[in-house]
Design a protein around this nucleic acid. Structure first.
Lengths: 404, 404
DNA sequence: GCATATTGTCTCTACCGCGAACAAACGAGC
DNA sequence: GCTCGTTTGTTCGCGGTAGAGACAATATGC
């Protein structure tokens, strides 16, 4: 059903039709480039004449440019259109508890230079100073990549959109940290910050080259914490305080283990990397002190051990798989997405875990079709979080007037 | 953020502006009637001339009519506009495990005649025949109320929208029951069916006379089962299979009591009326046989006993209150709504339960603001389910072309 | 060279909001 | 009763946009 309340009370004016079609054309060029005016007209099911006017406006505004002419079996050759991402770049930043990663992309989110990283400083002030220094040096290093359009920052915690503050990031030990504005003034560049789950979901939405791709999906990032981004109708669900999607703190068992959020038995407390490692060692790794060799073991190491025949490691992974599936049941029942994406280090062991995850999901899913919701794993090599950070900057200019 | 993918690939045509503005005008008349053309123009922030044309079109189509002239301190008196709900009515049906309720409303969802009911027949075929007979007799009885525009049916279970089938209604013992089409052909009237949680949410959305009212909220109905309707951006969240919102089967404890859905420890298994009564009697009432006096005791009776000093009754209610609050924590963390509405028999004891609910919610909510999400109780006398059923028929004609 | 096909542009028409003017209705004051 | 000011509702010319089709440019195949 369409919205009962008119979504925007804004009345349509003479220019509204053009505004709508301009956005559709721009997004179709983005997802289908290279594309000719004639093909665009066919996609939009409208006259070539109308498309010419739209495209010329986009070219005049510098968002689109004409490239090479394409090949055609018969008739005049088409001139291809491209999103003009030349001489512009975006800096993507992924803040994680131990290290912070930086990548430079173009406006389409394509990686332009290798990913660099530095240790995450826990003190916010010093961290911001260190990050600003790093970003500046990256930009100086890559002057050839064009003018930086902005910096997108992904945070493992809750973010207040308007103020650009980190409300709570337990794994960083941050609470009410003013991040966006200090960083923006230190860099002299626009900065966007967002929760990692939402950013990954945005990257997934943004990456799609096919307009028929699912626009109702859920993205789950399993790492130090558990982040969830919900996309409904092609739009990220933010909720009243921009904290929607915190399925990580929906319980599997309210009498379960203590979680970093203060509650007990949260999904995150069962499936985070720390929870998996804790199960392997048979004790809660949050209880300090732990010996250096224990603290140094990563989930990647654990997976290697499991593949190497370590039964305890495999058991820990399968236990996580089961809890992951049980929690997925909650997500699927509550949201009924057409697709689920899962990211995080743990996905490297997906071949070992998938069957267990699916069984647990089917146990809790209300209907067989919900239990069979397709699951796609996004490997860490795709840098979903960094691509999400880049999309934070690049996507708004395609999303609409009010945001760009 | 606006949708990144254009919501409809449908390109704006010459008529799109008018279509948008027509819908805005219609909804503003609905929520603000009686209203003059001049006031409408001010609300829409547009010219009176444009409004005149829009309104005349609506009058010509018979959806709006001119009523009395209003009063004005100075100048020409305005002519008031109203939604034309004369000579048209809607039949609302609420199917519940023991009885089925019927109400006649106008197109605005206002009750036109007293609510009638009859015992719910478990066999679908015989039930449909009985319901059709009842609806027909109600319509014959109220011929003065005008032509029936359709029948809205609310079901305590999952509904497949396209086919109009009840996928699963555990409390009715229905699975894959073809309901809409047989009923429609028996009545010769259009029939809409929907899950009770979603319908209640729609009623709440629809009831609002204020365009600034929350358009991001959650409606929770606690009765034989537990239904949840989610509204985001003024739109009901349906998900891929129209089963989104089944928070009733998100667990409080995966090792908890068995639930009718087949899983264990679902929220519903802790807070449904049956769960509350089971706690009072100290045993699972689903285990037959139960003595007649035990089976006959309703939640209303239980509340009366609690108010009368029955400590066990009060304890059962407070236990339900606690579980209700814990589950609300999941909803609030996952959706982050601006408002929560709660309906069901249990709301009659809200004064006894509220503090416990709020405490439990605050325990699990991730942030203080989420824990303080406003909760409004909708008393059963407002017939939220029947109003939702009515809205199923009436709302689409205001929602947009594609649906009406 | 010519027919055919395809792309991209141009022109004319229809639709609809924009802005302003105007008629109608009404009260206040003379 | 008359005029003035105010408010409502209508009308008219203007401008921006899509719709439909003609047309030039460009390429292939015979």
């Amino acid at each position: 059903m369409r919205p009962t309340q008119p979504r925007h009370l804004r009345v349509a004016t003479r220019g509204t039709t053009r505004e709508i079609n301009r956005r559709i054309a721009l997004n179709l060029i983005r997802t289908n480039q290279p594309i000719s005016r004639a093909d665009l007209a066919r996609l939009m099911e409208t006259r070539r004449g109308a498309v010419t006017l739209l495209v010329n406006e986009l070219i005049h505004d510098g968002v689109v440019f004409e490239g090479a002419t394409g090949e055609a079996k018969r008739g005049r050759k088409p001139t291809f259109l491209y999103i003009d991402s030349r001489k512009r770049c975006v800096v993507a930043v992924d803040i994680r508890p131990t290290r912070t990663f930086i990548m430079v992309t173009d406006l389409m989110g394509h990686q332009l230079a290798s990913v660099t990283s530095f240790p995450t400083e826990r003190d916010p002030k010093r961290f911001i100073a260190a990050l600003a220094k790093r970003v500046k040096s990256v930009l100086v290093e890559h002057k050839d990549l064009g003018r930086c359009q902005g910096v997108g920052v992904v945070v493992p915690g809750m973010v207040e959109s308007e103020a650009g503050r980190v409300l709570l990031a337990p794994n960083l030990g941050w609470r009410n940290v003013d991040l966006r504005d200090p960083l923006a003034s230190a860099l002299g560049l626009p900065v966007q910050i967002e929760n990692s789950g939402k950013a990954c979901a945005l990257a997934q939405l943004w990456a799609t080259r096919d307009a028929r791709a699912p626009t109702n999906f859920v993205y789950i990032t399993v790492s130090d914490g558990l982040g969830v981004g919900i996309v409904l109708g092609g739009e990220i669900v933010r909720g009243q305080h921009n904290i929607a999607g915190e399925f990580g703190h929906v319980p599997l068992n309210v009498d379960g283990p203590r979680c970093g959020c203060g509650a007990t038995g949260c999904w995150e407390a069962y499936v985070s990397n720390l929870a998996t490692l804790s199960r392997y060692f048979g004790r809660d790794l949050r209880d300090r002190p732990v010996s250096a060799d224990v603290a140094a073991l990563t989930v990647d190491d654990l997976i290697a051990r499991a593949r190497g025949g370590d039964a305890k490691a495999l058991a820990a992974l399968l236990s996580t798989a089961r809890y992951l599936g049980l929690g997925l049941g909650s997500v699927v029942n509550a949201i009924d997405p057409s697709h689920v994406y899962i990211g995080g280090e743990i996905t490297a062991a997906w071949d070992l875990m998938e069957a267990t995850v699916r069984t647990a999901l089917a146990e809790r899913a209300l209907t067989p079709s919900a239990g069979a919701t397709p699951i796609t794993v996004v490997p860490p090599e795709h840098y979903p979080r960094l691509r999400g950070a880049a999309a934070l900057v690049a996507a708004p200019s395609f999303a609409g007037e009010g945001v760009a």
